[in-house]
Structures are given as C-alpha cells and as structure tokens.
Amino acid sequence: MKKTLIKFIPFLIMASFLTTGCTQTGTTPKKLIAQHGTGSGSRSVLLAEVPVYMGNVADVSKKAKVIAIEVGKGEAAKTILVKFDDKTKGIENAVPGHASIINYEMRGGEPWATVVKPKLAKLPSGVTEVKTAELKTMMDKGEKFTLVDSRPAKRFAASNLPGAINIPSDEFEKQANMLPENKDELLVFYCGGPT
C-alpha cells in the first residue's frame, strides 16, 4: 500500500506544478525523489527526502542573509524566513517576486537554504511560448489575437501591454465570457514574471 502511494507522489507534485503560475504559490513540505526500476513492472524507490519550500520570494536581505518566501495558499499562506550563507547554491535565483524552490536543512532549529532554484513554469501541452520580439511583430502587423493579462486588477490598472484585456487568474471562470466566442482564435496570456 505504502509503495503505491509513494509511486503517485511524484505525479502529484508534477500536477501541483501545472496548476501554479506566476504568483500563485504552492508548498510541498517534503520532496520525494523516486526512480523507476528496470525489469518487469516499474517500481518506485525512495532515494532521499529533501525538505523544500516552494513559493514566491517576498524579499531578500543581503545584510541579514535571509530570504523571505511565501508558502501555502489562502488561510494557510505564510511567510517563512530562510537563512543563507556562502555555501548556499544558486542564491542569485532568489529574486523578489519570482517563484523559487528552496532546498533547506535545519540547523539549530532554523531553516538554512542549501540550494535555491527558480520555479519554472510548465506550459500545458499544446500551449507554446511567445517571446517579446515576436509579440511586438504580431502587434505591429495588426494580427488578430486576444491578449489577456492574468494579473490582479490593481496591477493591470497601473501598467498593462497595448490592447490587453484583464482577466485575473483567480477570477478566470467568472470572467471567461470576455474571451472571443470563436475558440479557434488565438489567445495570448501574460502576467508579471518569467514563471
């Protein structure tokens, strides 16, 4: 029973990646690294348990050598302070506003970052990325597409791309009627970051 459950955990982690985006945060208290065995029937082997914090970096203090990372959602959301030192790898990946994955270890009852990695966005299958130059060309040529800003209304109001409409991601279902009726038309989504 236990093994079956462990086998599914990597998939659950992957699924949580798929559902999170720019500023949405997710947290998994433990990251399980599993490996599929060879031979008849795939078998999952628990290699190591690396505790991780996953979420948006709220702030980084170089003076105090501390990263503040927001983990959890809704009621359970909180900001955790994680210390770092010269041995911490990838500290340049801790950028305020960007989603990160921090591997940590407990020292003296406090979390210390060992590795900081950017949490890269996973595009749903069939969805492709568009880069700045191509998007600019599409606009200049007057190509027909709907540009959707997924950020909260306040951020959209302060600064948005030419011709964009605003459908905040947490209100997507409520406001999806703003999308074109013809489902073959091109939609381009953006938000506030590279993840």
């Binding site: 999170t20 500023t23 595009l123 749903p124 969805v127 990325e129 999806a176 999308l179 489902k183 091109l186």
Partner: peptide, 18 residues
Amino acid sequence: MSTSSAGQAKKMGYKNIR
C-alpha cells in the same frame, strides 16, 4: 498565473493558446 489561465482556457476548448 498566465500558465494556469492558459490551462483553463484549453479546458474550455480554445485550440490556439500561447
């Protein structure tokens, strides 16, 4: 956020999403 919205649009049947 943009990726999750793209996923939701895909579920709604939009075929051409970037």
